[in-house]
Design a protein around this nucleic acid. Sequence first.
DNA 1: TTAGTTTGTTTACCCAATAAACTAACTTTA
DNA 2: TAAAGTTAGTTTATTGGGTAAACAAACTAA
Lengths: 388, 388
Amino acid sequence: MVIIQIADQALVKKMNQKLILDEILKNSPISRATLSEITGLNKSTVSSQVNTLLEKDFIFEIGAGQSRGGRRPVMLVFNKNAGYSIGIDIGVDYLNGILTDLEGNIILEKTSDLSSSSASEVKEILFALIHGFVTHMPESPYGLVGIGICVPGLVDRHQQIIFMPNLNWNIKDLQFLIESEFNVPVFVENEANAGAYGEKVFGMTKNYENIVYISINVGIGTGLVINNELYKGVQGFSGEMGHMTIDFNGPKCSCGNRGCWELYASEKALLASLSKEEKNISRKEIVERANKNDVEMLNALQNFGFYIGIGLTNILNTFDVEAVILRNHIIESHPIVLNTIKNEVSSRVHSHLDNKCELLPSSLGKNAPALGAVSIAIDSFLSVTPIS
Amino acid sequence: MVIIQIADQALVKKMNQKLILDEILKNSPISRATLSEITGLNKSTVSSQVNTLLEKDFIFEIGAGQSRGGRRPVMLVFNKNAGYSIGIDIGVDYLNGILTDLEGNIILEKTSDLSSSSASEVKEILFALIHGFVTHMPESPYGLVGIGICVPGLVDRHQQIIFMPNLNWNIKDLQFLIESEFNVPVFVENEANAGAYGEKVFGMTKNYENIVYISINVGIGTGLVINNELYKGVQGFSGEMGHMTIDFNGPKCSCGNRGCWELYASEKALLASLSKEEKNISRKEIVERANKNDVEMLNALQNFGFYIGIGLTNILNTFDVEAVILRNHIIESHPIVLNTIKNEVSSRVHSHLDNKCELLPSSLGKNAPALGAVSIAIDSFLSVTPIS
DNA sequence: TTAGTTTGTTTACCCAATAAACTAACTTTA
DNA sequence: TAAAGTTAGTTTATTGGGTAAACAAACTAA
């Protein structure tokens, strides 16, 4: 027996409901008449769907709007406080958690140190964090609608954590562990994928359909949004572009390959290029020195940008997306790296591909992955719950 | 005013009709009862849809099948001769045209030489070829349903040919030119994209959802099928992976970049690696010498495979697809290149990604692009026409 | 004051899918 | 060989989405 998606009236209602809810989210506040106009749905269909959404507390009326020469419209807004979502970004040495409303507005935010923690310590800190959020969550019709969690490692299609190279703990079935404790849907995702989705939903690129997200850290992670959806690959392992060879005779990488991009263009590589006494310098200090026009540092950053540009050219040749997002504290804080990247890309990429693709530093910064995790949970809630 | 896809009963009917037609195509001959079972649609719904398809000549009944302990079923088959489609692969120095039925079975095939032809000559040959096919096409309810054409160059979202580096002619609006002459829908596509789609629809990988197709010729072209659909990119220019840098200090490429993959792993590069008197050797001769265990040739082919493997590793790290198809006459004819590629990939790719992705030579061979072009035309016909 | 406009609801209707009852045609069993 | 059981496909009444048209409500402009 094959599982196939058949179409019936329930599907029609669901699709149109999503259409209407999306328009309310995008163009809030909005009237039934305008909704009918922009969706092309009949006025009575919109009225019926709006009534369902009102009953379910997904939207509410905020009273009359401006008249356009006739009866004044009743304005509708999305009920962002119908429920709340939690997003957690588990990094190599930190844990960044946020509590948001259904629009992704951050209500509470908490970061914990996680350096050299064991599995049981991570579990304890994680549980305490979530319990804290749940306690401080305002009253609402739906309460906590879901928890999204991202980790720096390979996550398969069944949300099992397969491999986390830079961590000394590994709870394979994090989803089950947390669902058992909190009894809400839990979604586990790769950090770069979550970041990409965060930028797609809440960032500058929210109106783009195809983006590449590049997270530059100890290594380089990449996430792909194609046709408005996260592309995870068959096994869930897509986007390991940090291990793309840019010099096939280059040095060995821990992944088994040679001359991987992240050996040249990661923060680890940047630090390695600095003089001995600066090897343990923080990101903040790097930016400060660059702002003071420290020549050695500016050169190092130009070199950093040069190597990022090489891999980026490969990505532009491969994907032809609307925008590439670069997630890195230094790039977001000082323009020199991005400028160098742009020069390098311009000199390398074919003239027909250039200029069209925007190269942007992350607008969400370090919250991008947590926000992506949050919106995975919210998306699931909104697509599963409504109807009537 | 925004254009949005709203859902109604017509959409329901269309979706279920496609569902049923696809099952008939896949599991022909099949009964109404079995269709109801595997799709999950009600028996009466299937009967109603089948009647529509019968009236429209898309399917027909071939009489009673085997009984399973009760009344004998009426078996249904797809009417592959309801119409015909033409696919044309315009290469650098050839033109390969096919006439097929709606299942993609080749009925007529014709190849023309095109070396150093001007735009007007190409147009003349092309028109003569299509007129020839139309003349020899059997009688059918729908006649010629569409023409698919692929070219070795950049084709944008509006099917305009933007750039063809290896040709001295360029008819930008090929679609309009041919539609005006033959009055059927015409689809223009990039050669590698068409090949990828051909392998997805008719090749060994027809049941896979995500594949990468690599066409190795004078240069290297790539096509992506993601979630069963051709990914064309925002402008239509995705998949220029031949110009991926595998050595950032490598030689300059005509595209402006350095150390592009196709400088090392194309047939042009293979020929350049041979001794002087062999520089103009044909593909056939290369395979013949390899079959005779010519040491110099075997070494050259191993070297060829080595470089293909390097770029392929990058692709595997990027996409996590079910299969990669290699379209090249030599690879399809002698195993040494593929074996070398597999070794190189195994030694480079991360253990978690290895083994899962199949590495296959093209099963359609030189007809892959033309078949892809054909199926783009057929797909459009089948998705636009039915309903009632 | 009156005519015209815009908003939103109500009513009658259409049509695709469905369940259940039915007819048809076969196999198995007694 | 007749009756019982099984499978295939159709018919009929119903459900429940969306729609058009008529309507009521509430405003603006002349």
